[in-house]
Simulated scan of single mutants.
Amino acid sequence: MNLHERSLSVLACQYVDEVIIGAPWEVSKDMITTFNISSVVHGTVAENNDFLKEKDNPYAVPISMDIFQILDSPLDITTTTIIKRIVSNHEAYQKRNQKKAESERMYYEDKTYVSGD
């Protein structure tokens, strides 16, 4: 899905009120006030969960305002796992099509014509 399709999918969720496209990495006090944000949530499964250890924590303001929550993710899907699935399926797709192409080539090579007489 492209960005707009993903945004619409997220907006269709009953728990989501707004999607901020192009949001900055760091959640600022101004952003929280402007968009009237009541909860900032981060899932437990992510490419990088070291934000709490970093000097410049992007969630520092929501944590200080006590509106930050960590949500236990039920699945272990990340960008990396999705890419691996796409690549593995792509290879299977290529193998299947090569087999079909070979079968088709053999059919045309061995094809005999039936006379109309």
Rank of each mutant, 00 (worst) to 15 (best):
E102V: 03
F68G: 00
T34Y: 08
Q69F: 11
V41R: 12
D50A: 10
N36K: 15
T33K: 15
E5K: 08
W25A: 14
E26M: 12
W25Y: 15
Q69N: 09
R85W: 00
K84G: 07
Y108H: 10
N48E: 01
Y107L: 11
S64N: 06
Y59R: 10
I32R: 05
M31K: 08
S28Q: 08
D56I: 06
Q94E: 13
H42D: 05
H90W: 12
S38R: 15
T79E: 13
S115Q: 09
M31C: 10
N36I: 05
Y107F: 15
Q14E: 14
Q98H: 07
S7F: 03
D17K: 15
V87Q: 03
E47Q: 09
L52T: 01
L71E: 09
E26H: 13
I77D: 01
T44K: 01
E18Y: 15
W25D: 07
D72G: 03
F68R: 04
I21Y: 09
D56P: 00
K100E: 07
Q14W: 01
S88M: 06
M65V: 04
N97L: 14
S103W: 02
Q14C: 06
Q14M: 12
I77G: 00
I82F: 08
C13R: 10
Y107M: 14
I63H: 00
G22I: 11
G43N: 09
R6F: 10
T80C: 14
D72V: 04
H42F: 13
D110C: 09
Q94C: 11
Q98N: 11
T79P: 01
Q94V: 13
V61L: 11
M106R: 05
R105E: 10
K111A: 06
D117Y: 14
D117C: 07
S73P: 04
V114N: 04
C13Q: 06
L75K: 14
I83H: 06
F51I: 00
N49W: 00
K29E: 14
E104C: 14
S115M: 14
K111R: 10
Y107R: 13
A92V: 04
N97D: 08
I67E: 01
E91Y: 10
V61C: 03
A101S: 12
S64F: 02
F68L: 10
Y15S: 15
I77E: 05
M1F: 02
Y93C: 05
V16F: 02
A46L: 07
L71N: 02
V45N: 01
I70F: 08
Q69H: 13
S103Y: 01
N49C: 07
